[in-house]
């Protein structure tokens, strides 16, 4: 069969070898991405799971934070995230609706878009200092959950805006045309047709925001989170402990911490975020299953 009409030439064979090599390289690179995730999770579980217990979750730290649980930090993080969401979700969705549904294409709109992109690019430590200047000092909220959550809200606003705007724009234009031509106003169109079909995308933005707010340390360090507090926060004007800062503290600032404590804190933090994410993902899939076009 040497002289088969369609047999591979030497050049063909060389190209095929390169093809295989390149493909292998790409697979390897993509595979490498999983590695850090697996290593992190494995290490955390391996080194931290021994400390996990109901008591660990629901008691105060004791003995200079080398023993006891993490309850104030856990509760504090929930406070911070919830208050940040209360501020940024309505604000972000409203801004995104304006940008997607109302805004004319002019320099003003482009300026707003530019601001959003820039806001997303500001390092978190700069947000922290801004929050300190604006909320703690200027508005005189003091170091408090309110000041810290507002800082987190501003930091995560671009995420909510961008995700919402994209999901609004993913709703087919034909739906809007149909509504306008039946005499619906813009708001009626948005409320009855556009928003209900964009919920799942908006939720994605909110999920991302939750994960980010729960994990950020810098923005809350100067604005509302404290090293140690024996008291649970009673309201938004109180200071609070937080998981991310607590992890930093027990890992680097406190002597004689048993090895499994910081790993345990990290494991709980990751677990919190994962649980919140999976709830919203499940909810999103439920919504997606219902829509079809």
């Amino acid at each position: 069969m040497d002289n088969h009409m369609f047999a591979a030439t030497e050049l063909n064979q060389k190209n095929q070898r390169t093809e295989k090599l390149v493909r292998l390289l790409f697979i390897l690179m993509a595979g490498l991405l999983i590695l850090p995730v697996l290593i992190i999770l494995f290490t955390l579980v391996y080194k931290g799971s021994s400390i996990l217990s109901i008591d660990f979750l629901f008691t105060n730290p004791t003995n200079g934070m080398t023993e006891g649980g993490i309850f104030p930090a856990l509760l504090g993080t929930i406070w911070l995230v919830v208050v940040a969401l209360i501020v940024s979700v309505p604000l972000g969705i409203a801004a995104a609706i304006y940008l997607s549904e109302y805004a004319p294409d002019n320099w003003g709109t482009r300026l707003i878009n530019l601001a959003i992109i820039n806001l997303a690019g500001v390092p978190s430590i700069v947000h922290a200092l801004f929050g300190l200047g604006a909320f703690v000092v200027f508005f005189n909220f003091g170091t408090s959950i309110l000041a810290a959550s507002l800082t987190l809200a501003i930091m995560t606003l671009p995420v909510v805006i961008v995700a919402t705007r994209e999901s609004l724009q993913a709703v087919p234009h034909a739906f809007r045309e149909a509504c306008w031509n039946m005499g619906a106003t813009r708001w009626q169109t948005i409320r009855r047709v556009v928003l209900p079909n964009a919920v799942s995308g908006i939720l994605t933005g909110v999920i991302l925001e939750v994960s980010r707010s729960a994990g950020e340390t810098a923005p809350i360090m100067f604005t509302g989170a404290v090293f140690f507090s024996p008291f649970l926060p009673q309201g938004v004007m109180d200071q609070t402990m937080a998981m991310s800062l607590h992890l930093f503290v027990v890992s680097t600032q406190v002597p004689n911490v048993p090895e499994n404590l910081p790993y345990g804190v990290a494991l709980v933090l990751i677990g919190m975020v994962l649980i919140m994410n999976s709830i919203s993902i499940a909810f999103r899939m439920h919504l997606r299953g219902k829509k079809k076009w």
């Binding site: 045309e177 149909a178 031509n181 039946m182 005499g183």
Partner: peptide
């Protein structure tokens, strides 16, 4: 008032564009 005008002048498009709801809700939308 454009709402009144469009109410009395209905429009049908090249591609059918039913809203992503039930048949009944589509009819009742307007």
């Amino acid at each position: 008032e454009l709402v009144q005008l469009r109410k009395q002048v209905g429009m049908v498009f090249q591609r059918p564009n039913p809203l992503p709801t039930s048949i009944r809700e589509n009819i009742l939308f307007g």
